[in-house]
Design a protein around this nucleic acid. Structure first.
Length: 964
RNA sequence: GCGGGGGUUGCCGAGCCAGGUAAAAGGCGGCGGACUCAAGAUCCGCUGGCGUAGGCCUGCGUGGGUUCGAAUCCCACCCCCCGCACCA
């Protein structure tokens, strides 16, 4: 038996044939177009199963639309922009063992190649090459003539990005700004989460510095809660810490040494004047800002020079640290006396209540300290107490009358206003700091740096947001649930830095020391696909892609004749490019994983609405889950990672495609399990052989008439075409493929059980339809079957089956359902009675029971209650039939009708006269299945064989059954 | 903290928006049977519990509620996952 199929060979064969015939190369023509895109993958590593999952959904859609007769363009490109590739190259140059190990062991790069990766461009090219063959290997229906990569290493693409940025600037969407970031002083670059050894998730926090005056010195106390200044009772300094006196903005500030260093990175000029020990100021008095009170400076050891300014003010009513530190002083009189502070002075300090908060009394800090039994200021529980109070007061706290115009407001409502007021009065300042340690990958502790004159995309712009929203409104989002996410992100988005100092990319056209960053040069590049073909075939050279020409191509602005003249380009070329763009644009579908939703996909919308007119705005976005492997999130460092190259080697393309497609849809995370892939491989082989066997039968078994069961199969296949098409069009790829693969298979299997001889012509048709329905999902297997079924040239370009609503035959569906129910009942009984039956007798309900049934159905449709129906039926029929029988029948009928969907209710009423005939026609089948004789009677027929009086139990659509 | 998504029978995963067709699709696994010298593949049946007649009981995170009827609607609670920006 030739049961072996070799997927590897078969896949190679079809890739070659598809390419040779250029069936995925798409140029403008007079057909309707569909333009689909997948976000270009980043070339710092091999493509993996996660890429495959998302791209597969694009490919399925592309293949479906192509078969539906659309002119479909699915192009591909490669992302090189950013610091990651360069960073990786640098680490290889530094012989970073971990990086090299991952490259060799996980990514499968030959160690001799790795050495060459010290050149980032070499690395990017290497992966681009590798990955291209993988994209082909999976059968993605890509038009490669439009391929490109990003950055200044692709002159034409750079020209496009320059144009994009000039447009954005013209529209006023690019602004200069200042922003605090986590910074590595050694690498002299921002340190993002992925670049950290320690402190992942930590971001700059804004401290407010409240300026206390002490003679000519300013003591800037750092706080997150400047609104509590009204409750200040004293100032804290750490007596053991060295402080610096520095010139800042014309004032003399006292700061801890680290604080002075930090502030110097935050756009403040810091000049050294002198030094002093904390103890030197202890016991002195200073004037608190805002309230103008004189307060004493006291010693506290919780004050950390590395945190904030090393100066802290005290609000014992609302800050556990402050309250416990005061208590510590009272508990240690020796400390007080060493600073010559009288105990009296401390005892005179009374907490001032400022904020009313549910669940606490006057002084929340005191209460929580007592409740948690905090020992002293070194007890870790102080931190916990602080967190509890801070959160509670921030969200639920209400300001008391001491706040004047702010009184009655919630803390979170008033906070920003209060800060604004303090800053404008000059009694406060700002400093950024990290509340937890952050260590750069290079081992250096990070600080906060305020970068000035950075370029920002003004995502905060109200009008821009409005445009983005109106684009969203007209867009299809698959699944619809994800729309909420987009709305939320658009609202929430703030200005975003759009340039970088390091890495690969396109220089900003008007400020070339900056590179356009990676989430900006990936937003409207799909437009470039429409003309990259002309660059690749040499019909236009990159330097000719001036802003003027691009304005004409993409926006229709300017005059082609004069551009032709000034650029030395043929007029028809310019017009062809313009009309090619005009033909393909807008993007009809873009798909990505949900991780890109709050950034890339949203920016994709923003940039389109900024630059293009509404008719060129994207039509649809698909979002999917993130791939898991064996139930765990992918992670290269943990070795939870499968490259596509390996996966193809292990399973072949169609097995990967099928397994991925069946694993999830919508926002659910697909979970790749090798075992599932193996199971699917078995099924794929089975279905392949099944169809070929069936083809053989179809050729030898001919039947001239169309039997009921044949009509049933036609009905089923039409239903399947309908659901598969509908689901695939909405990117419900799992459901669609499941129906195409298992759904049809089960129908056909049932059909084969039901008949002794197949209707050959019908089966031949069904097989062709079935292969077409499988083609978008598992194209290689489908092509091979298509050929073996005697078709040519390609199923990939064959026309998608149309369903015929008229062929969806509810009547035969219903008959078949009755037969299935009957078989099920017989098997249930057989199981329960545990005997070996010799013969089966069936009794279809007598005519009068149908009369009652119809009567009940009528009353149900009038929304009568069961009670009413019983009463009505008894009054109508009791003369002829017993009350008990009637009640039983009404109860059965009522339940049966209520539990049927509306279409079926109608069918049932129409089928009352057919029931006997249906079972008669299935008699042979039942006998074959059960391997015993079956007799069918009508219960009211005279002289029937019915020893156990089972005919009495016959109900409409539920025959009496007697098993002997 | 803010925002989003979830918890379903051995596993994966439908159903939930529009309550009744539902012991709850489908796949996987397990068990039994057919085929075979045998194994594999394939096909059929079973796969919550009980039951010598198509039935009964229990059941969809937990606890309440609405309803003739709830996995589906309402309320409260518990738990899990994802994103939150200078990474791509």
């Amino acid at each position: 038996m030739s049961k072996l199929i070799n997927f590897e060979e078969l896949e190679k064969k079809w890739i070659k044939l598809w390419r040779e015939n250029g069936i995925f190369e798409a140029d403008p023509n007079d057909k309707s177009k569909i333009f689909v895109t997948f976000p270009f993958p980043y070339m710092n590593g091999p493509l993996h199963l996660g890429h495959a999952f998302t791209a597969l959904r694009v490919d399925v859609y592309a293949r479906l639309k192509r078969m539906q007769g659309f002119n479909v363009l699915f192009p591909w490109a490669w992302h090189w922009t950013g610091a990651t590739i360069a960073g990786q190259a640098k680490r290889i140059a530094e012989h970073d063992e971990h990086v090299i190990k991952v490259l060799v062991e996980i990514d499968g790069v030959n160690p001799r190649e790795v050495e060459k990766f010290i050149d980032p461009i070499y690395m990017a090219k290497y992966y681009t090459n590798e990955n291209k063959s993988v994209v082909d290997g999976l059968g993605f229906s890509v038009d490669w003539r439009r391929e490109f990569h990003t950055t200044s290493h692709h002159k034409a693409f750079s020209k496009f990005i320059e144009w994009q940025y000039l447009k954005l600037r013209e529209k006023g969407y690019i602004v200069k700004g200042t922003h605090p970031i986590v910074w590595c002083p050694r690498c002299k670059s921002p340190t993002g989460d992925h670049d950290r050894l320690e402190g992942v998730g930590v971001s700059p926090e804004k401290y407010i510095l409240m300026k206390f005056k002490c003679g000519d010195l300013i003591l800037p106390a750092a706080t997150f809660r400047p609104e509590t200044i009204y409750g200040v009772t004293n100032l804290w300094l750490n007596p053991n810490v060295d402080y610096l006196i520095v010139h800042v903005d014309g004032e003399k500030w006292v700061l801890s040494k680290p604080a002075a260093e930090k502030i110097s990175n935050q756009l403040k000029k810091v000049e050294y004047i002198g030094e002093l020990k904390g103890r030197e100021l202890i016991g002195k008095k200073c004037i608190a800002p805002v309230v103008g009170r004189e307060v004493i400076i006291l010693p506290a050891f919780f004050v950390d020079p590395n945190n904030g300014t090393g100066v802290v003010y005290s609000v014992p009513a609302h800050a556990p640290y402050d309250w416990i530190a005061l208590k510590d002083l009272l508990d240690h009189p020796e400390l007080l006396s060493s600073y010559e502070i009288s105990r009296d002075e401390i005892e005179r300090i009374k907490p001032i209540s400022l904020i009313e908060v549910e669940g606490f009394g006057e002084f929340p800090a005191i209460e929580i300290v007592e409740k948690l039994k905090v020992r002293d200021q070194n007890d870790p529980k102080v931190e916990e107490a602080t967190q509890i109070i801070y959160k509670r007061e921030f969200h639920k706290g209400v300001l008391k009358s001491i706040y004047g115009k702010y009184a009655g407001l919630k803390v979170f409502e008033a906070k920003d206003k209060i800060i604004e007021e303090f800053l404008s009065k000059g009694c406060a300042d700002i400093m950024y700091d990290l509340t937890q340690k952050v260590i750069c990958r290079c081992g250096t502790p990070c600080i906060v740096k305020v970068l000035k004159d950075q370029w920002f995309l003004k995502y905060s712009d109200k009008e821009w947001k409005q445009l983005a929203k109106s684009a969203l409104k007209n867009m299809k989002i698959y699944p619809e649930d994800a729309r909420k996410n987009f709305e939320e992100v658009i609202d929430w988005l703030q200005d975003k830095a759009c340039t970088r100092a390091t890495g690969l990319g396109t220089p900003l056209p008007w400020d070339e020391k900056w590179l356009v960053e990676t989430l900006s040069d990936s937003t409207i590049y799909m437009a470039f696909y429409t003309i990259s073909k002309y660059v690749n075939d040499g019909r236009i050279s990159p330097e000719k892609l001036t802003p003027e020409l691009l304005d004409y191509i993409f926006l229709g602005k300017g005059d082609s004749k004069s551009i032709s003249k000034s650029h030395g380009l043929p007029l028809n070329l310019i017009n062809e490019m313009r009309s090619e763009f005009d033909y393909w644009y807008p993007v009809d579908l873009r798909v990505s994983a949900k991780e890109l939703l709050p950034n890339h996909l949203t920016f994709f919308i923003f940039h389109h609405v900024a630059i293009f007119p509404p008719e060129k705005w994207p039509k649809a976005i698909g979002v999917n889950g993130m791939l898991m492997i064996e139930g765990k999130p992918m992670s290269k460092s943990k070795g939870i990672f499968i490259t596509l190259k390996n996966a193809i080697k292990m399973f072949g393309a169609d097995v990967i495609r099928g397994t991925l497609l069946l694993s999830a849809e919508d926002l659910d995370d697909p979970d790749w399990r090798n075992k599932n892939a193996e199971d699917f491989r078995r099924n794929l082989k089975s279905i392949f052989n099944f169809m070929l066997e069936l083809k053989k039968r179809a050729m030898s078994e001919k039947i001239s008439e169309l039997r009921e069961i044949d009509r049933w199969l036609i009905s089923q296949i039409n239903k399947k075409i309908k659901t598969i098409t509908k689901n695939a069009e909405q990117l419900k790829t799992r459901t669609a493929f499941h129906e195409a693969f298992y759904g049809i298979w089960n129908d056909v299997k049932w059909y084969l059980r039901r008949v002794e001889k197949v209707n050959g012509d019908l089966i031949a048709d069904i097989l062709n339809i079935w292969v077409k329905l499988l083609a978008p999902f598992i194209p290689f297997t489908a092509e091979e079957l298509w050929e073996k079924l005697g078709n040519k040239p390609f199923v990939s370009t064959a026309s998608w089956p149309n369903y015929d609503e008229k062929k969806i035959d509810l009547r035969s569906d219903f008959s078949e359902k009755l037969i299935k129910n009957l078989l099920e009942d017989i098997l249930k009984i057989r199981k329960a009675i545990k005997i070996n039956p010799s013969r089966i007798y069936l009794y279809v309900a007598p005519a009068w029971k149908y009369d009652v049934y119809i009567e009940v159905a009528k009353l149900v449709s009038q929304k009568a209650s069961l009670k009413e129906i019983v009463r009505h039926v008894i009054s109508k029929f009791h003369a002829k039939y017993s009350r008990r029988e009637l009640i039983k029948l009404v109860q059965y009928s009522f339940e049966d009708i209520v539990n049927s969907p509306p279409v079926e209710r109608k069918l049932k009423i129409e089928s009352v006269s057919r029931e006997l005939e249906i079972y008669e026609s299935a008699k042979d089948f039942l006998e074959r299945e059960l391997k015993i004789k079956v007799s069918v009677y009508r219960a009211d027929q005279p002289e029937i064989y019915d020893p156990k009086r089972k005919a009495n139990s016959a109900m409409p659509f539920r025959p009496g059954i007697y098993i002997e």
